[in-house]
Write a protein that binds this DNA or RNA. Structure first.
Lengths: 365, 365
DNA sequence: TTGTAGGCGTTATCAA
DNA sequence: TTGATAACGCCTACAA
């Protein structure tokens, strides 16, 4: 025969963490009253409220958020899966996201996919199973499987894509205008006199890499410069590929090069060292992503800065709108990149007057 | 009168996510059987097992980890609170931790305290309420309140301290041998002829900052160099304080300086730029923390590398041991720092033979 | 081997 | 305003 439920629930005399039942017993009220007081929902008489508060304090009661999540069907937790938090591009983004999440009462589960679709798949499944309220996804190049789509669909978990689109996934996107960024970089290089401009791209199955490449091509055309395949290298946004790019491209002696992320720039620079070419004397360079330290080491890097913190912030804003049902139509947020002229582009090697003119000229030729 | 429990449980005909009951009904077995099959616990006949598996596939069933956590009283989630993930010191640590966690089936909740005790307090309470199985804590300088101690005590949640000790908190610690790191840095500088060596410390209420300072003092004594208060500056591990340190220290024209983290080194270098002093020509510099890009920009920084990834890895190893009850005695893991000689120390400015000798000499004078 | 039903700690519904 | 009790979805004694 079933035991007396009330009794067993009320028991809990061990040294266990107090539950809402213990508080109710201590305050001589029902669990409803306790819950109402704690969540400040429903009207409770001052007398009982005080009794509850006293009991809470006495027992050092702290609600079990796990149980609450189960009951309310929401965890106040977001999942964030990025390629690799150790890639300096991501920390500021994650920080922006975490700040916004924390401010809204959400916590952040961090995942590193290493751009591997199997790792990503595992994490997506995990996040869904842990019932996160939303997922911020820096998608691997691979497209989602039908099973994954079905899973995300059924779970009704909002997703916002970060810096990378995913064909077939109609959802919110937060990204930078990478085409424009590349155009500004190339235009700047062309403006200060570079003709033979090489280009190191990211993996072309990634949307932002394609956009940067489009910008490169478009800008070349704008400036009447020839596109030469041998001045182009497809990397993977990691150091090693930048190193290979340097060894592949520099022997052609380009006037300048646009490297589309910081990690590849590092590899590129060390290749230049090995070859014995110096920047900016032997070749100009513009890199994507800016960092606080780039201004105090030589060569000072000219960069296309991407608003990392704001990207993360915007991503959780969008996801919160989705969670709160404030919006149902997917939107895309495009943030503006910003050219930061320093020395690596070769700027300082040109006559002062010309240089000053170039710096302030934002028009096409 | 109470409804028929079975029926209400079994209902769930809406478009909701299937629960274990739905699977049981579909497979015409009990929830026990489903649970046993899913978790591969207890013996289930092949026939039933197959039926269950078919039902799971058909319904696209995925266990609700929230409910499981509530029932099993463990979340398979770790909390990690660091000062600031945007500080380049932390990403690799977090990555090491996340990798180890993921490998063991744990996820990672990331929190940024900004070294503020109120933010830290909020996060600790949140993590406890979310019932994380363990907490990796890069403690703020403040000591835990009695209420916090009580809370952590009652929750029985294992904690491992990361890089910073906390007086009164008897628990596992993962850190680097910072005293030794500073000694090696100073010894190297002394070996290559520097006499007047300045020092930029972190906040002295942080244990590792104190240790580095002790190392500085000890090394000065070993090498018979005088300790001069005006050659010492207490920063806070952030860029701005390094900048102030530069302006405070450089006018005294030290032969060299040891800056005890990367962020402060950035600030220090830019101050040097403003003053018009060059490194290593006008002053030698050794910095703490090494990064992949330090080898390809000028001046190439001589550094004391700390094994960041390994720190994170070790931290979750310890916490897992605690969670699994494999160990009850608190232990401290001390990892070795490593001197990486490049050019900022002024090494190259000395006669080749002496320099080579110095590089290989690991003995005291 | 399999099923039944209580427990995990909340919230929420519906009488009283 | 309060209280009793059914969800939430899972695990797991204990029974059969």
């Amino acid at each position: 025969m079933p035991k007396n439920v009330k009794r067993t629930r009320t028991a809990n005399r061990g040294s266990k963490v107090p539950s809402i039942y213990d508080v109710a017993r201590e305050a001589k009220v029902s669990v409803f009253t306790v819950s109402a007081v704690i969540n400040d929902t429903g009207r409770v008489s001052t007398t009982l409220a005080r009794r509850v508060e006293a009991a809470v304090r006495k027992l050092n009661y702290r609600p079990n958020l796990l149980a609450r999540s189960l009951a309310k069907q929401q965890t106040h937790t977001l999942g964030m899966v990025v390629t690799d938090i150790a890639n300096p591009f991501f920390p500021a983004i994650v920080r922006g996201a975490e700040d916004a999440a924390q401010k809204a009462g959400y916590s952040m589960l961090l995942c590193n996919s290493d751009d591997k679709e199997d790792k990503e798949a595992v994490y997506l499944e995990l996040l869904v199973s842990k019932r996160v309220d939303g997922i911020i996804l820096n998608k691997t190049p691979s497209t989602l499987t039908v099973a994954q789509r079905r899973m995300l669909e059924e779970a009704k978990v909002p997703i916002v894509l970060l810096m990378r689109t995913c064909p077939g996934l109609k959802t919110d996107i937060v990204q930078t205008n990478d085409r424009l960024g590349a155009i500004e970089a190339i235009s700047h290089l062309a403006r200060i006199g570079h003709k033979k401009i090489a280009f190191v791209s990211g993996p072309l199955d990634v949307s932002n890499a394609r956009a940067r490449r489009q910008g490169y091509c478009a800008a070349l055309e704008q400036w009447g410069l020839e596109y030469l395949p041998e001045l182009t290298f497809e990397g993977d946004y990691r150091i090693e590929s930048g190193h290979r790019a340097g060894h592949a491209l520099l022997p052609h002696r380009p006037d300048a090069v646009l490297v589309t992320n910081y990690l590849m720039t590092i590899g590129f620079m060390s290749a230049a060292d090995e070859i014995g070419l110096r920047c900016p004397e032997d070749f100009g360079l513009v890199s994507f992503d800016d960092y606080p330290w780039l201004g105090c080491f030589r060569p000072r890097l000219t960069t296309i800065e991407l608003p990392k913190y704001e990207l993360g912030d915007a991503a959780v804003r969008l996801i919160l709108e989705r969670i709160q049902g404030k919006r149902t139509q997917p939107i895309t947020v495009n943030m503006l990149p910003q050219l930061r002229v320093r020395e690596s582009c070769g700027f300082m090697l040109y006559p002062k007057r010309e240089a000053a003119a170039a710096l302030h000229a934002h028009d096409k030729p």
